[in-house]
Design a protein around this nucleic acid. Sequence first.
DNA 1: GGGGTGACCCAGT
DNA 2: TACTGGGCCACCC
Length: 104
Amino acid sequence: MSPEEYVEEVLCLVERIPPGRVMSYGAIADYLAERSGRASARRVGSIMAQYGGAVPWYRVVSGAGRLPPGHEQEARARLMEEGVVFRGPRVAIADYAWWPEAAG
DNA sequence: GGGGTGACCCAGT
DNA sequence: TACTGGGCCACCC
């Protein structure tokens, strides 16, 4: 799988995250690992930092439910509009974590 | 080829 | 709960 393919897979997956649900960088990497064979949360984060603007990036948070630096207010507002409850500065990811049902 | 960096994650204290 | 150290992979200089 080429780097461009991997990027598109990440973006495509993020677009599939339904409203009111969230996914962690590690979860995305772990899911794509089954398709690309290799993945890392760091790589997913790096991709989101570059191409995240084209997808609902605010539905992607860290494994601890922390929001992307520099866009915390933005993500927080977007998620709350979708009914996501916050545990202080973090998302209750344990309750809103989403995983694709059909793994293609 | 070598060293530093990053929208990360896990384990220990 | 917050802080710290190690692991991980790809990108840039």
